[in-house]
């Protein structure tokens, strides 16, 4: 049963990635989907230029609206982020993000010395907030071209999800795009390769240190409908939860840490069942009673 529960998350991630990137013809033809569902944002970091993408990336959409001529603020995308944040917090990162899935799968590759965290983790984890404020908000709003239009700085200079899910498949299947390759693609490929290689040794380096979407959802972890609480009567502070946590969180101290992606490993590892959700599933509650 424990093994099955471990695999459920992977299957949910695979299923959600397939459902939201189901336009198979795009991969074959080197094109992207142009249907009405692209009005709607998906919760995870899923580039809208991925040939299979049926929805829009919230971080890309955010920058698209604030760099438009008419709007410098986006009610629509912030509304989406508030909605998913209030319901799930960073559960989205753990269960619904395709780039998170890729990092999870890479971390399953055996490696002689898996690292619990990178050196400088305490400082590095704040980098994602700097990227959010700098590359997603301030630079797109303030660095303007001659016609007064900004650029999507995060998508252009950092986003490895766009390179992996959109850049590589489109360039592989669309010869005219190949002819336009330059230093920017090399730079983005370098970021992607470093993160993918690092993912084998460290659990989810992009989510921990760089992802602006994770930075936003993490702020909602303490108030989201799906959040954890510790039963102080059951908890012996044995540290089993921290040992099981691949993000190295002291769950008994900070059950709603902004770093937690709600994978559930800590709950399975707790020998006394002291970690529960604040709003348990009604069916389970009835069974327990």
């Amino acid at each position: 049963m424990g093994k099955l529960r471990e695999h459920i998350r992977t299957w949910v991630q695979l299923l959600f990635a397939a459902l939201t990137n189901g336009y198979a013809a795009g991969f074959a033809n080197g094109t992207i989907y142009k249907g009405a569902s692209k009005l709607v944002c998906v919760p995870g970091l899923n580039c809208y230029s991925c040939p299979g993408a049926l929805g829009s990336c919230p971080i890309g959409s955010f920058q698209a609206v604030i760099t438009s001529r008419t709007n410098k603020f986006t009610f629509y995308v912030i509304g989406f982020l508030l909605l998913f944040g209030a319901l799930f917090g960073r559960l989205v990162c753990g269960w619904l993000c395709p780039f998170g899935l890729v990092q999870d799968l890479l971390h399953k590759i055996p490696f002689p010395k898996k690292l619990r965290r990178l050196p400088g983790d305490r400082v590095l984890k704040y980098l994602k907030y700097i990227i959010l404020i700098g590359f997603v908000i301030v630079l797109p709003l303030t660095v303007l071209d001659i016609v007064g239009q900004g650029q999507p700085w995060f998508c252009k200079y950092i986003c490895p999800s766009g390179t992996l899910f959109a850049g590589i498949p489109l360039i592989a299947s669309n010869p005219p795009l190949r002819a336009a390759l330059g230093w920017l693609f090399t730079w983005k490929m370098a970021i992607l390769v470093v993160l993918l290689v690092l993912s084998v040794a460290v659990y989810r380096p992009f989510c921990r240190y760089l992802c602006p979407l994770g930075a936003i959802y993490g702020l909602f972890n303490p108030i989201a409908l799906y959040r954890f609480r510790i039963d102080a009567e059951k908890c012996t502070q044995c540290g089993a939860c921290r040992h099981a946590c691949k993000l190295d969180i002291s769950v008994w101290e900070t059950p709603n840490s902004a770093e937690c992606i709600r994978c559930g490993d800590c709950r399975r590892a707790c020998p006394r069942g002291a970690i529960d959700t604040v709003n348990p599933c009604p069916v389970k509650r009835k069974k327990d009673a």
Binding site: I32, K38, C41, G167
Partner: peptide, 30 residues
């Protein structure tokens, strides 16, 4: 409320226009 206001301001059209054209910045072509 924000979602409704965003729809009224037609931000959905900006998102849609961006999403149905290949984003050169996103794929690393500038």
């Amino acid at each position: 409320l924000f979602l409704a206001q965003g729809v009224l301001r037609e931000e959905t059209q900006i998102v849609f226009r961006k999403a149905v054209n290949i984003c050169m910045e996103c794929i690393g072509l500038g």
